[in-house]
Amino acid sequence: MIERDRQLRNLTYRRFVELGRAPSLAELAGELGIEPDDLAASWRRLHDEHALVLDPDGEIRMAAPFSAVLTPYGVRAAGRSWFANCAWDAFGVCAALGTDGEISSACPDCGEPIEIAFREGRADPDEHVVHLLVPAARWWDDIAFT
């Protein structure tokens, strides 16, 4: 990874957390005083290296574990509401922020609401299970589906 790309990746993540949402390409380029095309090229390389996930328009779709779009995995942590990409990432939002949190989701089979707290690194309650459908070797074949 190019050092400049690594720095821009870290700035993108930092801005995501400061804003509580994904920064747009134009917004972040403006704040950094760089050409949007330069940032777009950096984000594209980061996407190709699995450090970010872009949508078809070249905007942030995922800064894992954070999701830039509404998902069935809501997280309340650090005084904000977030969306995670999956159940694993929902705990990951709390882990990345280094704080406790509350996760709201629903059973993908029956639709029953699920509320789980992340407290001091533990799930409460711990009675639920998570099913990962896609093997690790194919996680990045279609990361949105994974």
Binding site: A123, P125, H128, V130
Partner: peptide, 8 residues
């Protein structure tokens, strides 16, 4: 399938 605890 893994537990919520293991996922954590």
């Amino acid at each position: 399938t893994i537990s919520a605890g293991k996922t954590c």
